[in-house]
Design a protein around this nucleic acid. Structure first.
Lengths: 122, 122
DNA sequence: TGTCATGTGTACTATATAGTACACAATTTA
DNA sequence: TAAATTGTGTACTATATAGTACACATGACA
């Protein structure tokens, strides 16, 4: 198993939808499009990169449908979840400082902070 | 000294620009507008809330001009700095988790984490 | 008192965002 | 083999974003 890293939003969606489709016919472009509430032609164009990724709401529906992480799909689409933005906007200086501090920290440091906060080690 | 909390972006800008203008005539709507690179009528409308706050770039220029914190002004404008968004988008799951954990934490916990990270206590 | 600067009303404008609607050829399925 | 389903090309559309351009009345000032 290998990972393709350099992948657009559309390519990623197509790949994962096709994988599900191989096991279940309900994952055709048309049927997925209907379930997430867009026109089939639009989803087709999104997957081929013919148009920009859709709105946050549609990306969330897609994440749900394909069992993918919404924050990751949003990131691939060049977006940041609106609930995170709201959290930051309520205390902009505190969060701006912290996030810029963490910019260059390794993954496991960030992971550890999140764990410590969750476990109440504060 | 007291703080006015319920204030729109435009009201805040007007108040602080007017304060500077009281000491220095170069802080008129027209002159500030020229220095940040917009039409005077546009800045006037922004300050009165007649139009939405301007782009991130103009808000930064305004922050510079009025000696205000750009992250705070952006937050008042309903935005999050694009450099922070980029940091989050590079590791969406790590940052999403951490930020949601911190949502309900008091200011000084967040402050302390930022300080600890800066001081290398990790 | 004339001119210079000031703030603002009105009327546009260009580009981006987020899609829809329909037709059609190819493939699948019953 | 007829009917249904599929993916996609073409042509639009509505709303938001981010402003400009100009005119005008008012007030400051030299």
């Amino acid at each position: 198993m290998y990972y393709i890293v350099h992948m657009t939003f559309g390519e990623y969606i197509r790949e994962h939808r096709e994988a599900l489709k191989a096991e279940d016919r309900r994952f055709s472009v048309r049927q997925v499009a209907q379930r997430i509430g867009v026109e089939p032609a639009y989803l087709s164009k999104i997957e081929r990169g013919d148009v920009a990724p859709p709105s946050e709401a549609k990306i969330r529906a897609l994440a749900d449908e394909l069992n993918e992480d919404a924050d990751m799909l949003l990131a691939m689409a060049g977006k940041v979840s609106s609930d995170l933005q709201e959290i930051i906007r309520k205390r902009p200086q505190l969060f701006a400082d912290l996030i810029r501090q963490l910019k260059t920290m390794p993954d496991n440091s960030i992971l550890r902070i999140a764990r410590d906060v969750r476990d109440g080690d504060w």
